[in-house]
Design a protein around this nucleic acid. Structure first.
Lengths: 251, 251
DNA sequence: CGTGTTATTGACCAACATCAAACTTAGTGG
DNA sequence: CCACTAAGTTTGATGTTGGTCAATAACACG
């Protein structure tokens, strides 16, 4: 357990939260004082599983995580993806029991902050609580967008929309230079996120490639025609509630 | 604008929040001090629309509300339903711009509380902020459940699940004596919530009736076989994070 | 008693799931 | 460096679910 030093990890947390909220100097020093422990997580393993009662929340330093639910007989639904800088289980601070699982899709490095400590700081520093509340609110907004995406769009649009979301979120993080996204996801996993079977997911990917919207080599996917991808996915980035748009990108 | 009196409306708010959080006497007196104004809303009208920047949040006193998004060419997705006692747009306290709309499906009576005031109280009373945060976290949990429901279940299960959710939530409110739910929703609206076309929604309802799970007379739907409905909808109430289960109900 | 909304039905078609097999790729150990 | 293997992708064939269109029946309301 490390203490007060404004470590590289703290700096990362501060940068990330700055992207969605205005942080005062005081807020920053509060953040810099949060204790945490670092954990590395192997690919395809759970950080927390449905039904558990975690006592820490997780901050993603590296890797790709997802939240998911297992439904009857081998059906999986991925609920969200989480990149470096995310706080994927803030809700566990307020809900005793996990209603879903959080797992690493790639090898990952995370920082774990005790709930006890977060609660103490929220009580002592209401403006810190407000920053977390805004983060949680955006989390909710993304869920709403996914409900609409899965409920009312066909496969092609759904997948286009998902790639748009990845593109914008990764650009904000500086992880999408020249439209190239490194997404170490199998097509089956992309299907679990969009509610499509692996086979159909494959066919949709082929459509996207044939239409010149996306090019894929291995797990590097390149956005070839942003405007058209956006149109097909009916994508509007408003729901991400970004404070600042990524440079050179029509949203 | 009414002031401090612990009015009937305040009492309602306190009762409702007690169902999900433990409230101290102090919390209750803080709640009782919130100013609000009452508004009646006609059937099928918006309380707030996507893109707007509300300055108040809404507490439902009477009626049935829903949050929804309009997607390209006349596609609508309902994101959540809200009964008396709900706070359906808490997120607007933290997100300037509405990413969805909030509308009344039936004539409704709501109380509007200024954001300014909520923010002031959250800053002054962190334990109040925590109660709201828990409410928002449950809101998010229900969205996650819907993503799984719409993404990975067929029509019959989806609709069964939705009725299970209504049943449990309304029972908690005492609105479901002997399994009868008053849901003044058209089948098209139920379809908008489950991602089904009106025609298919109709056929699913007929299946549910034929299987003896639900009986419908007008807008009164009666749960006829709870265990089987629950099984078909793969329903587990954990995601509602209720403090106390409704009486005589296997969840 | 008309008029508009909602529920229901049938016919037909598109989207997507499932199954099974072949093919490609990346990784592993000799 | 080359088999060998396991995982992931791709393909074809086939069946199911659910969407669309259009018409009819049942209601609700003034």
């Amino acid at each position: 357990m490390q203490m007060i030093s404004p470590s590289r990890e703290h700096a990362r947390l501060i940068t990330q939260l700055s992207a969605i909220s205005h942080l005062s100097e005081h807020d920053k020093s509060v953040l810099a004082g949060l204790p945490f422990r670092i954990k590395t997580v192997a690919k395809q393993t759970d950080i927390i599983s449905e039904g558990e009662r975690p006592t820490e929340s997780c901050f993603v330093l590296e890797g790709l995580l997802c939240r998911y639910k297992l439904l009857g007989r081998a059906k999986r639904q991925i609920l969200s993806f989480h990149l470096a800088g995310d706080l994927p289980d803030l809700q566990s601070l307020h809900l005793e029991c996990m209603d879903h699982s959080l797992g690493a899709l790639t090898p990952a490095r995370i920082a774990l902050v005790p709930h006890e400590e977060l609660r103490r700081v929220c009580m002592a520093e209401p403006s810190f609580a407000a920053v977390l509340a805004r983060h949680a609110a955006i989390d909710g907004s993304i869920f709403r967008e996914w409900i609409g995406n899965i409920g009312r769009r066909d496969g092609l649009s759904r997948v286009a929309h998902l790639f748009c979301e990845f593109y914008v979120r990764m650009r904000v993080l500086g992880l999408a230079s020249d439209g190239a996204l490194s997404l170490p996801l199998t097509q089956a996993e992309l299907g679990d996120a969009t509610g499509l079977s692996p086979v159909h997911m494959n066919r949709v990917m082929q459509q996207l490639r044939a239409a010149g919207l996306i090019a894929s080599r291995g797990h590097i996917h390149t956005v070839r025609d942003w405007d058209e991808l956006r149109r097909v996915g009916e994508f509007n980035a408003g729901y991400l509630h970004l404070k600042t748009a990524p440079p050179n990108l029509a949203l």
